[in-house]
Write a protein that binds this DNA or RNA. Structure first.
Lengths: 130, 130
DNA sequence: CTGGCACCTGGAGCGCTCTCCAGGTCAAGC
DNA sequence: GCTTGACCTGGAGAGCGCTCCAGGTGCCAG
């Protein structure tokens, strides 16, 4: 039955490199994968689900070291649930603050775009303007 | 009249290190600052304004190399205005996409928080639940 | 039996963005 | 006149997140 997906399949499915996946395992971001008889990693569906969640954490700016902490808590299920919750709530705060900051910066950039646009249309509308 | 602010003042005002400021100049992110008689950098108000805009670009994920391109265009004012506009518009697209992605990830994280919350209240509300 | 391919390990290397350091100059205050 | 502190330069070092490599194993197809 050769349970689970090989590393290449998982990498392709999630748009990662196999090197990145192995690197995550070394770094503790991923729990050590099960191995088949030949020593190759085999990923179960729930491993992939966990990885997808971890990628959302990564993509929202959580450092790998902190994701590794989270993964460590997942591995002590169910004992780690309160800490996991606290960690996610703290990250949620950071993330909403970041989104707010990005949105403010977007406003500044839009202001600049409007400026340049005005300069350009002014120059076009009144060539050789006084 | 010793025109302009010394590097330390600018750094404090914008929350940067003086090393970072000098690094930005080396990298072309900042135009070479004017110098006083003793060779020390002196920043005029408009230098600080430019820097603030550049920091918004940096904070929204634009790589320093690209910011340096932008700065180069600023230095050829007014010739560089159309390219600056194009560059900002392109960055604006990237940025809105990033904000959207972060918002989606926030939703996933909120879902996880809700899950854990439910597990915790279930465990508390029905200790030794069947 | 021979390729070829996906996988393995340990470790080196890389791109980015700073940060720190040694060694030196200069102006102001005591 | 001497110390102190902010500034200068060029260059090395650091942390993060991968990416690449050499050298090797095991399985399947032809």
């Amino acid at each position: 039955m050769s349970d689970g997906y090989p590393i290449g399949d998982v990498a392709r499915r999630l748009g990662l490199s196999v090197d990145a996946l192995r690197y995550y395992e070394r770094a503790g971001v991923l729990p050590p994968a099960d191995r088949d008889a030949g020593g190759r990693r085999r990923y179960a569906e729930h491993d992939v689900h966990l990885l997808e969640v971890l990628l959302h954490l990564r993509d929202t700016g959580m450092p790998l070291a902190e994701i590794a902490t989270f993964t460590g808590l997942v591995r002590q299920d169910p004992a780690g649930v309160p800490e996991r919750l606290a960690l996610l709530r703290a990250h949620r705060e950071v993330l909403t603050a970041r989104i707010a900051a990005l949105t403010r910066s977007l406003g500044v950039i839009d202001g600049k775009i409007a400026d340049y646009d005005a300069r350009l249309t002014a120059a076009a509308g009144a060539p050789g303007a006084r």
